[in-house]
Design a protein around this nucleic acid. Sequence first.
DNA 1: AGTGGTCGCTAAACTGATTTAGCAGAGCAT
DNA 2: ATGCTCTGCTAAATCAGTTTAGCGACCACT
Lengths: 341, 341
Amino acid sequence: MGRNRATLADVARKAGLSKTAASMVLNGREGTRLSAEAHQRVFAAAEELGYRPNLAARSLRTRKTATIAFVSDIVATTRFAGGLIRGALDAARERDHVLLITETQGDATFEQYAIEAVLDRQVDGVIYAAMATRRLTVPPAILGGPVVLLNATSPDGLPSVLPDDDRAGRSVATALLEHGHRDAIALIGRNRLKEDDPEVSLAARARLHGIQQALDDAGVTLLAECFCTEWLPEHGYAAMRGLLNRPKRPSAIICMNDRLAFGAYQALGEAGLTVPEDISVISFDDDPIAAWLRPSLATTALPHEQMGRRAVELLLDGGATEPSLVPMPLRRRRSLAPPAG
Amino acid sequence: MGRNRATLADVARKAGLSKTAASMVLNGREGTRLSAEAHQRVFAAAEELGYRPNLAARSLRTRKTATIAFVSDIVATTRFAGGLIRGALDAARERDHVLLITETQGDATFEQYAIEAVLDRQVDGVIYAAMATRRLTVPPAILGGPVVLLNATSPDGLPSVLPDDDRAGRSVATALLEHGHRDAIALIGRNRLKEDDPEVSLAARARLHGIQQALDDAGVTLLAECFCTEWLPEHGYAAMRGLLNRPKRPSAIICMNDRLAFGAYQALGEAGLTVPEDISVISFDDDPIAAWLRPSLATTALPHEQMGRRAVELLLDGGATEPSLVPMPLRRRRSLAPPAG
DNA sequence: AGTGGTCGCTAAACTGATTTAGCAGAGCAT
DNA sequence: ATGCTCTGCTAAATCAGTTTAGCGACCACT
């Protein structure tokens, strides 16, 4: 790869100047007194030779690699990761950086390996990303340089980027209230583990909190709350069936994520009920399926790209130490309507 | 990052030997005549200092970085990419390599930039990946070193990795034949553009070919074929509705991908028909939604992890120049049954 | 004439590894 | 005593850049 690339020495020779001069000109160093003509000659030579610096050599001296490590537990390879990586890639490119991606798969040995691998390559900083929004402790090895937590926080007070699930919870509840739903709103996706253990999830608690705040403010209480061991379609399906067996049918459902909502749709369809005429549905994440459902599902979007971008910005430009909360925009879609009759 | 790491010189000093000796011992060089005791001392010193070589320095000398570039048009950030990247990451780790990921977004300027960025970092090879299985021409700049095409082929005869869509087509059709479907099989997702232009898609043509071969072999002809401008749920929905308006109702549907099948499910549900009792459905991709649908959707899985893995293997271990076809396993699920009546 | 300052530029050190060439000493044969 | 080989190790070059220290020429001023 990259055999016979022109070196700085080649450029200098062609320009009839020293390596020093060539280096200074190409780096646009201020305060050097090289003549305008010398500049011309160096630029011309570099251009002609198609010169590109060898970054390995440069970083040996400067201890900068213009490379960021993106270390994740498992996020890099899930459908949720795409946006995070894309945002990070974009922001990195804008700053002339590049991303070295590794995955730990939640395995301590792999994590150790991944971190050594990136540190050996002298990365300028590490973005440590988690698939589920949660609290974690970062491996001490990476604390020697800049670190930003993505979709996670740590007790160390490291800079971090999180989605604003609390406000999302409020938006979701408020959207239902605005449509006139009050005393027949049900919630699918309560989960003690997720709500109580910040190392498992921060989102569940925050979403729930936001929802309850907004309902409290309106003097509304939930008609029912369904607990789910996981947030997968089958659990949403089961929960929805359970709800339909109760005496009072809900006028609206809040699902803790879109997959639950997908399951709820299935149960509603089987029961011969239509969304939103019979029941409104709203949820969280803006998974691609949300837009594919019939009718399309109102939801609050996890701002993955923004988050990835913000992480790079915090890492390279520095920034606040308190968690950086990224808003989750509400996607108003067809699954909302005023309560029937 | 990585300030005050011990250097080889530190190790050598502590071991009371030269850098040369330390380097040779740590690299396990054969044919050197260093004493067993010297080995001990070097290992002990390295261990004690937590020595890790500076790979920038090493690669300056050796021209190897143990780093692979993963350049993709847009694949890195879509739900389809996860598996490709995960497989590549796994295989790379097994070979002590790491992945530098960039995305071109299909934009020539970005592509140019991405390629320069990775070449400047002296990567050992490039995996050039496409989101849609298709033919493309690779930018000449990367031809200076090893290249493997992932989910793509090129006219240059570069090594490439493709899913075996043709065989998948056969599997799909055969699965229906085995269930006894014959003269009432319909196909959703014909698309001239995808079928005829290899720069748009190779999969459509191959899948179709496989399907038709299997049907021809059984002396069966399709009941109907629906053309779709895109392979999204809404198109599957529309196509399915069209099919249900025809005089003879199909006993089974083949969808060219799972999203189309998802749309078909929606139309079937609205029409009050049940899968698989009234109509069997089978498709391609094994998108996560396939398992979430009710009933779960039989499909042929795009072997993303295998493909990513294979790409790294071809790149590092060398290999055949003809396209490497990775089998697409059939996922037998609940959406298949013998025709009604 | 001597001193000092600015201008325009370069030699050489430095980064941390690998690799080539070769040295000192021991052992042995002549 | 001389020459030879083998053993066990090291000095120095090298990779391709950046950075420090400073040199020679020219000018101005006292």
